[in-house]
Each structure stands twice: as structure tokens, then as C-alpha cells.
């Protein structure tokens, strides 16, 4: 059957074989992110050195969208400055709301694989879970 759903290879690959789904025992920031209505639950763990996110990972359960989106996010933000990560998060949220330009969407690299969520209101929360948790974690920290 032709795959009319939007689950492309990038998403399924990050869902089944996540790069960053593991524990970081000595994380500097640990924050829970939950979508109570659908049961997505992650715990985001970050290591920070000054302004730089030096390492990051997550544990938890949820749908493929929440898991893949969080995994993609971590791949993009590790090694970046906190303020860059927050900016990326804002661009991602603009994309999900259908407000981002083509140029902005391209700047999101792999995360642009989730652009079609903007037409799927029921799944917006799933795609945002990791980014929302990240933004709260960095806000609490500063």
C-alpha cells in the first residue's frame, strides 16, 4: 500500500533507532515533559558548560512523533549555544504553526521533516514536546 501517511523514513528511523535516547547520570539539567492527554512522557537531560550545551539525551515513552522530534532536536542543539537552541526552538514552533518561511524551514535541517504537522492539529503537541521542554529547561536555568 502506498504510504499516504506522513511517516517518512527520517521520522521512523529516529523513532526506532534514536541517537540520544539514553541516560546521562551527571546531567546538569533534568526536566520532565508530559502531554497528559495522550500520554507522551519524556525526561530531558542536558549538560551545560557556560553558554554551551555540551551533551543531551532523553528517556521516556510516547508516540513516534514525540520521540523522533525530541531525538532530532538533540542532534541539532548539542554543541550549540543555549541562545541558538532557543532560537531554533522558536523557528520550529513557527514552522509547526505554519508561519515559517521556506528559508526558516530549511534552516531546521532534519527537523523540517516534521513540517506537515502544521496540517495536523491533533499532533502539534506531540511534535512540540521536546522543544517545549527544552525551552522551559533553559529558561529555568538562566
Amino acid at each position: 500500500m502506498e504510504n499516504r501517511s506522513f511517516y517518512n523514513e527520517i521520522l521512523t528511523e529516529h523513532n526506532i533507532h534514536p541517537d540520544f535516547k539514553h541516560d546521562i547520570p551527571d546531567a546538569d539539567i533534568v526536566l520532565d515533559g508530559v502531554n497528559p492527554s495522550c500520554g507522551d512522557e519524556i525526561q530531558l537531560k542536558l549538560k551545560i558548560d557556560g553558554d554551551i550545551i555540551t551533551d543531551g539525551a532523553f528517556v521516556g515513552d510516547g508516540c513516534a512523533i514525540s520521540q523522533a522530534s525530541t531525538d532530532i532536536m538533540l542532534g541539532m542543539i548539542i554543541g550549540r549555544k543555549k541562545e541558538e537552541a532557543v532560537k531554533m526552538g522558536n523557528t520550529f514552533m513557527r514552522m509547526i504553526r505554519g508561519e515559517a518561511s521556506e528559508e526558516e524551514i530549511e534552516s531546521l535541517e532534519e527537523a523540517s521533516a516534521l513540517r506537515d504537522i502544521s496540517h495536523m492539529p491533533a499532533r502539534v503537541k506531540c511534535a512540540m514536546l521536546g522543544w517545549r521542554t527544552l525551552s522551559e529547561a533553559l529558561k529555568n536555568e538562566s
Binding site: M1, F6, Y7, C38, G62, C63, A64, I65, R123
Partner: peptide
């Protein structure tokens, strides 16, 4: 197995 119910329902909806 291995597939979250919301993803199952999303695929069914796309069909």
C-alpha cells in the same frame, strides 16, 4: 507491537 496508538490511528486516518 512497538507502535504507539496515536501513530496507528494517524495511519488509519490517512487511509
Amino acid at each position: 507491537d512497538d507502535v504507539h496508538p496515536h501513530d496507528i490511528s494517524e495511519i488509519l486516518a490517512s487511509d
